[in-house]
Structures are given as structure tokens and as C-alpha cells.
Amino acid sequence: MGSKLKVIKQSGAYLVRGVTLLIAISILSFVLMSLSPIDPMRAYVQANPGASAENIAKMEEFWGLNDPMPTRFVKWGSALLRGDFGTSKLYRRPVLEIIGTRFAATLALMLTAWTMSGVLGFSIGCAMGLTQGSFIDRVLKRLCLIMCSIPTFWIGLVFLMLFSVWLGWFPFGMAVPAGVAAGDVTIWQRLHHLVLPAATLSFLSFANVALHTREKLTEVMSSEYVLFARARGKSRFQILRQHGFRNILMPAVTMQFSSFSELFGGSVLAENIFGYPGLGAAASAAGLQSDIPLLLGITLFSALFVFAGNAIANGLYVVIDPRVREGVA
């Protein structure tokens, strides 16, 4: 009866939490950036040699670098509220525009990797959980544990060497072939460029998903309700279909949604290795060259992205589990 009201109340609480999170993140990252040892002016001069001392002083005045930190924050923050994220020094374009185009590329990469790791991890996890304790299970489990310990950048380099340098199956980095007009790039060429970075990124988490699914399914298969289902004459397959999936699918899906942060972190590495022009590569470039408006914009955007992932994960639990829905468990 009051469930609708409860949903509205919970959504409201989430909204408040999201806004306060963004405020906290913007303050924290602004302070950290201001304390960063990389001087934005020097980075600019290095990138544009030949600027006179007079010009540098003018630029400092123009960028407001002489103002105290709180003044700068208020300036930046009030512009932000008006929807103005500033202009990237690095790309000389509005930050929002850069985030928009870059994010499209990154989203394609992350979505592919996310789906791949989810489907692959879930299937391998199910195979392990059903054959728990058998030879197959023990081999797969060891493999997964090894996978978990391999760093993303290393597997990226191995993929690059193996599949593009030695075998020549996939292009050596970038999102589109070089020397082709943007309008002439086919979807197949884009996909071809996407495979290796996406595979690298999915390697980050699929073993984790598999081990988690295995653990969950093992737990379900040794549960009392599966024992009772067997006593009622249900076959192994029926039990997997009726009780197995029902009980492990949701934890797996919610885990997928809450893995957005790892995905974002991994994309920074994967994009740098493959020279893939996504948000991750832009973030590290902005950080190294002290492109403060861009880096702050990306930070806020990624925080929002991760927050949305976690919110979806929590929301799904409420939808699926009748006990959570009624506030029992």
C-alpha cells in the first residue's frame, strides 16, 4: 500500500545523496588540483614555447591564477551552476563538448567490455558452480584466480603484441583507421578497432564475476531449499532453472552495475595502451598537462556515472527481492 510512497521517498533520498556527493567531489578535487605540483602556466609555456614574460603575466591574470583558491573555486563553481564547465586548455574547446564526444567512444568500449565480462563470467561461474569440486571446476577456478592477479596494462600489452604485432589480426591502436575521412569510416572498421581494447578491459573483471557467480551458485546448490527441491523429485536442470538462476542472476547483475568504478579506472589504462581516444585517455592527458577545467569536468562526470551505476544496483534489489521490497532483510 505504502510502497509507492516509499519508492518516492527513497528516490528523493538518493537524489539528495547524489547532489551532496557531487558537491563534496568538486570541492575535494578542486583543492587537490590547486595543490598539485604541476603548475598550469609552466605546462602551458612548455606546450607553447616563445611566450614572453609579459604575455605569461597577462595569461596568469586572464586565467585568474593570481586569485586565492576560494575565489577561484567560487568563480568556477558559479560558472558550473550556469552549465559552463569552462574551456579545455589542451583541446581549446568547451569541456562539455569534449566530454560528449569522448564519452561516446568510451561508452562503446565500456559497454562492450561490460557485456563481455558479464556474459563470459556468468557462464564460466555457472559451469564451475554446477560441477563444484570436480576436475573442471578446479582447473577453471585456478585459471580465474590467475586472471584476477594479472594487471590490466600487462594483459593489454600482451594482446597488442600477440594479436596486432605478431598475428596482425587487429589494428595497432586508435579508434578508426588512419588517413580515412571521418565520414567514410564504416561501423565494421570501428568494431575492428574496438575488439582489443574491449577484450583488455573485460579481462579486468570477468574472472571476478566468474568466481563470484561460482560462490553464489555453490551456496544455492547446497542450500536447504535445493535439498528440498531434490526431495520433491526435481532434476538438476529444473533446479538450476527454477532456483539457481533466480537466486544468482540478481547478485550478478547488481555486481555488474556496481563495477562501474573499476570499469572507468580500467578504461584509463586500456585507452592509453591502445591510443583509443576516449574519456580515460583525455583524463590522463588533462592530469599530466594540468588542464584543470577538463580534469574537473571529467572527475565530476565519472563520479556521476559511478553513482548512477550503484543507484541502479540498489534499485534492482528492491525490484527483485520481495524481502528487500518489504524491508524484511
Binding site: E224, Y225, L227, A231, R232, Q242, R246, N247, D321, P322
Partner: peptide
């Protein structure tokens, strides 16, 4: 296999033996 759940039935201890999501 044929008799379980029909001619031979099992009564468990508690409601814990039922799938909470079904």
C-alpha cells in the same frame, strides 16, 4: 527418481527449506 515427490515425500524442518524468491 520416479517415486520421489509423489509416493515418497519429504517434510522438512522449517520454512528455510523453501526458496525465498519463489
Amino acid at each position: 527418481k520416479k517415486l520421489r515427490g509423489t509416493r515418497i515425500a519429504f517434510v522438512p524442518q522449517s520454512v528455510e527449506y523453501l526458496d525465498p524468491l519463489m
